[in-house]
Design a protein around this nucleic acid. Structure first.
Length: 612
RNA sequence: GGGGUCGUAGUUCAGUUUGGUUAGAACGCCUGCCUGUCACGCAGGAGGCCGCGAGUUCGAGUCUCGUCGACCCCGCCA
């Protein structure tokens, strides 16, 4: 029998887990606790499978070996009863062995005890469940008993441990930042918490610890990290929850290279430790301009090729007005070649056209190279040489189709980017790379917002401008260009900002920050935040920058998205123990919910009922 | 805010196209039988506000409108 002190799993109620015993334990007397995973009553012999977090072990009840009372009790158990069984470990008879480990042995039961009965569960606790997600969320505690989901939560834990240990080894300090902070006018809508002691005033829950981590740099913690909860009151998606976890990182005295190196090291360490996968580093790098030109999107899935080809030079002067007008108006003509696409049905082409249109394109032209020659509705408008030139440049061969969009640069990128994404869906097979990481950097600092008639921060308001573009910051104030002119100085400032993309998902974003109060104020004023308002909202950060703030920068990998990818999950809900629905409700605890009128009274809050 | 898919025994679904007897199946549940099962087997049984509310109709699971909920997408979101 194993010595108790070797067995960390032993408690007062059990000696071992349900995943622990093996052939070397044969002969030991053991006590297991677990849920009933199955019970097979053969009339005489009775088998019960016990399940806990660690595995499954079969207990055998023989009427010849146990008392009638125990036998009767064992016959009464049902799925998900919590029970405790004591008996002797024995090898299973030949031909009755299942797999390895606990499948080679069983407990010859001597006694058993029902610790707690269970209602008939609303769905079976098994990996290949058919239960709807709605039901699984309502009974999340049962869902989490499923080994598959449990394993994902455990992997998440091990990933967190690996990350903490990696960053610790590099001299990082984990520091908790406040959850009750003041609302700052960045990006997303805040969750808000009323103050009882200051009626009429509110805390906001942090969208990220952004300003606090910068202040920690000013405080001298030159390497900070935190597995930080971030809260945003925005609409949900498969990859978005109102509360998510970031591996929040900030460092002093760094440039982009330092951050890239750190994250590459961290990710390869993580994938090696948790998945035993070798990730090749450094990751590929693309500027924003380059990635948009080649893939039409700032977070491309580059597990497959399908690059966009520039065709303006060839088709720009063609007789097809859509093309020539786009070219003359400063737009571009670009295409994607798809292998074997000449066989696309009319319906398939219509689908792709709809996708392109949904991204703003007015249509989707195509040239198919079939066995019977060129098939294209635009062939009559453009010359044979132009067709040949376009096909040659795009690498279109017999059996392929070249899909073309002509429009403004951004519209062409967006629409071909979405068409490419759709096409990519169909070619994800064994030939594609497993883990396609890439960095995207030099995003524009500002983006013109037509609704507001001014510029918005494309990333966040604390990102520093590229030093070569710094003069544009001042020039913008005097510029005679219209604000929506792509040539406006503010539209042409690159930011020291970067994203990390994995398999088409943005998994991290960061930047080198502004550490000079004057520049920060300039950026704020471009965004239409005047001195007074800046002082009110950001005064504490601006003030901190005045006291020798060091140059600093950081990044924030999204922990939920990373673990979702690592576990092959379609949704980050699969790696969050207690997620919300797409309508931001928790079906298990029924939140959000009304609160007691007394609580409202105490907070000085009155609910106004709207009519409609 | 907008678009799409879905909602029928405890569960997953069929039935809705073309309105018409008593709304089916599988798993689960209950009872009995069964001494090496592990998707145990065999026999029998119970179980339905067809999401909810209006409307059309002699008659609605089926048609219409509204509403609630889940999921996916657009907007939105560092």
């Amino acid at each position: 029998m194993k010595k108790a002190k070797d067995n960390i799993y032993e408690t007062s109620l059990r000696t071992h887990t349900c995943g622990q015993l093996e052939e070397s334990d044969i002969g030991s007397t053991v006590t297991l606790c677990g849920w009933v995973d199955g019970h097979r009553d053969l009339g005489g012999l009775l088998f019960i499978d016990l399940r806990d977090r660690w595995g499954k072990t079969q207990a055998a009840f023989d009427p010849a070996a146990v008392s009638p009372e125990v036998m009767e009790s064992a016959r009464s158990v049902r799925y998900e009863f919590s029970i405790r069984v004591t008996g002797v470990v024995r090898g299973r008879p030949e031909g009755m062995k299942k797999g390895a480990g606990t499948g080679l042995i069983e407990i010859q039961a001597e006694t058993m005890e029902i610790l707690n009965i269970s209602e008939t569960p609303p769905f079976m606790v098994e990996d290949d469940t058919t239960a709807s997600e709605e039901l699984r969320l309502k009974y999340r505690y049962l869902d989490l008993r499923r080994p598959l989901l449990k394993n994902k939560i455990e992997l998440r834990h091990r990933a967190a441990m690996a990350i903490r240990s990696y960053l610790d080894s590099k001299g990082f300090v984990e520091i908790e930042t406040p959850l009750l902070i003041r609302s700052t006018p960045e990006g997303a809508r805040d969750f808000v918490v009323p103050s009882r002691q200051h009626k009429g005033k509110f805390f906001a829950l942090p969208q990220s610890p952004q300003l606090f981590k910068q202040i920690l740099m000013v405080s001298g913690f030159d390497r900070y990290f935190q597995l930080a909860r971030c809260l945003r009151d925005e609409d949900l998606r498969a990859d978005r929850q109102p509360e998510h976890t970031q591996i929040d990182i900030e460092m002093s005295y760094v440039n982009m290279e330092d951050i890239f190196g750190l994250v590459e090291g961290m990710m390869s360490d993580l994938f090696k430790k948790i998945l035993d996968e070798e990730i090749s580093i450094p990751f590929e790098r693309y500027t924003y301009q380059e990635v948009m030109d080649r893939y039409g999107i700032d977070k491309p899935d580059i597990r497959f090729g399908l690059e966009i080809t520039e065709l303006s030079d060839i088709l720009g002067k063609s007789g097809f007005k859509v093309f020539s007008e786009a070219a003359a108006g400063g737009g571009v003509i670009r295409g994607i070649n798809f292998k074997g696409g000449a066989a696309f049905s009319r319906k398939r082409i219509d689908e792709l056209t709809e996708i392109a249109k949904s991204a703003g394109a007015r249509g989707l032209a195509y040239i198919a190279m079939t066995d019977d020659g060129i098939k294209s509705p635009i062939a009559k408008f453009i010359s044979d040489d132009e067709i040949k030139g376009a096909l040659a440049k795009a690498g279109t061969e017999k059996g392929d189709i070249l899909l073309i969009v002509a429009d403004k640069w951004k519209t062409v990128c967006d629409s071909l980017g979405m068409v490419r994404k759709e096409l990519g869906r169909t070619i994800q097979g064994s030939s594609v790379r497993k883990w396609a990481f890439l960095w995207v950097y030099e995003f524009p600092l500002f983006e013109y917002n037509p609704d507001l008639g001014r510029f918005d921060a494309m990333h966040n308001i604390v990102t520093s401008p590229h030093k070569d573009d710094m003069p544009n910051l001042g020039l913008g104030f005097e510029s005679k260009s219209a604000v929506d002119d792509p040539g406006h100085p503010w539209a042409n400032i690159r930011a020291n900002q970067y994203d990390l993309v994995l398999n088409g998902m943005e998994i991290a974003s960061g930047g080198i920050r502004i550490h000079d109060r004057k520049i920060q104020e300039l950026v704020l004023s471009v965004l239409g935040i005047d001195r007074e308002r800046a002082e009110k909202m950001f005064g504490f950060l601006l003030k901190a920058l005045e006291y020798g703030a060091p140059p600093h920068g950081g990044i924030a990998p999204g922990f939920d998205r990373i673990t979702a990818l690592m576990t092959g999950s379609d949704s980050i809900r699969e790696v969050i123990a207690f997620p919300k629905t797409t309508a931001a409700q928790s079906l298990m605890d029924g939140s959000p919910a009304e609160i007691d009128p007394n609580q409202l009274e105490e907070l000085g809050i009155e609910i106004i009922k709207r009519k409609n």
